[in-house]
Structure formats: structure tokens, C-alpha cells
């Protein structure tokens, strides 16, 4: 099929403007960017339907003259969903403003903390640091008798729970 010049230019322009706004830190501008991207995408879908035609309604036009109904059905739901998502984003903006008087996407502090951490994850304790009863059986292969030399027989033992204590 032969593409037009107008539609690709328009699509490109809307995408460019949308992306520029999407990369902003202000949530309002992100949302505006999202709307522009939505419009651009709907237009892109529409343009794939080929050249213009008559409305795809039987009785009004013959099937050969109709514009492609499939992209239209896809776009129709996309339009309504875009509305739902924008309402959601607006609610987020509102809440962010209500709670902290900010409507910016700030830096994620959690991510910064992870990035700054050089050591290992603190949840992963070295078994050697644990109390003996918490060590896995068979971990301490060190055979160091507990309670000083000569008192114990070498063993892998850790105290497993007794049945009556369960």
C-alpha cells in the first residue's frame, strides 16, 4: 500500500512531543506526554489500515469501499482505556500533592541505598555467626570439640529439636 506523507509526519511529531514530556520529572507533564503518545499510537494504528474509505457500516457502504474495521476496533478500546489510565494517573498526582506537596517523580531512595551498599545482603547471615542451635546440621565440619580440648568427642552435632519440644 502507498503511505501518505502527512500521517507519518504527524505521527512522528506527536511521538517526539510525547517522549519529550514523558521524560520530565513533573508528573503532570508525564501525563500529558502519555496522552500525546496515546494519540500518536492511535494514529499509527489507524494509518496501518490503509487509505481512507467509507464508514464500515453495511447498508451505508459496500465492503470494498469500507475503511479497515479492525484497527478501528482496536483504537476504540484504546481510547477508552487511555481515559481510565489518565484518571488513575491524575489520582496519583492528586495524592502525591495531598501527602507531600510534590508532584514530581523524585529519585527512588530505596534504589539509591541499594546502589550505595557495597557489602552483602544483611538478611543472609553467615551460619558461623549463628547460635549453635540455629546452625544447619553438618555445617560445622570443623571438629573443634566444644567446651575446650579433651572434653568432647568430635561431632557435627547441632542440637536438633527434640520431639517433645516440638
Amino acid at each position: 500500500m502507498t503511505p501518505t506523507i502527512v500521517l507519518p509526519v504527524l505521527i512522528g511529531g506527536l511521538y517526539a512531543a510525547g517522549v519529550y514530556l514523558l521524560l520530565d520529572r513533573s508528573l503532570t507533564r508525564v501525563l500529558l506526554g502519555f496522552l500525546l503518545l496515546g494519540n500518536a499510537t492511535n494514529l499509527l494504528l489507524l494509518s496501518t489500515g490503509g487509505p481512507r474509505g467509507l464508514a464500515p457500516i453495511l447498508g451505508y457502504a459496500e465492503p470494498e469501499e469500507m475503511s479497515d474495521p479492525l484497527p478501528q476496533a482496536l483504537i476504540l478500546t484504546a481510547i477508552v482505556i487511555t481515559f481510565g489510565i489518565s484518571a488513575f494517573l491524575l489520582a496519583m498526582i492528586h495524592r502525591s500533592w495531598r501527602l507531600v506537596h510534590e508532584e514530581n517523580v523524585g529519585t527512588d531512595e530505596e534504589d539509591r541505598r541499594v546502589a550505595a551498599r557495597s557489602g552483602l545482603d544483611a538478611d543472609e547471615l553467615d551460619p558461623d555467626d549463628l547460635a549453635p542451635e540455629d546452625r544447619p546440621a553438618g555445617h560445622a565440619d570443623s571438629l573443634r570439640p566444644r567446651g575446650g580440648p579433651g572434653t568432647g568427642v568430635p561431632s557435627d552435632d547441632v542440637d536438633l529439636p527434640a520431639a517433645s519440644a516440638r
Binding site: L7, P8, V9, A16, A17, L44, S47
Partner: peptide, 24 residues
């Protein structure tokens, strides 16, 4: 930087639309 990315994406998507239609 944002502007550069935005314009490049715009060009890309415009071209994608045209190429996709032409290749159909």
C-alpha cells in the same frame, strides 16, 4: 538529551508507520 531522544524516537516511529504500510 531529552530533546535528542524525543526527536529520534519521533523519526523512528514516523518511519515505522510508513515502512510498515509500504511493506504490507
Amino acid at each position: 538529551a531529552r530533546g535528542t531522544i524525543a526527536v529520534a524516537v519521533g523519526l523512528l516511529m514516523g518511519a515505522v508507520g510508513a515502512v510498515a504500510l509500504g511493506a504490507r
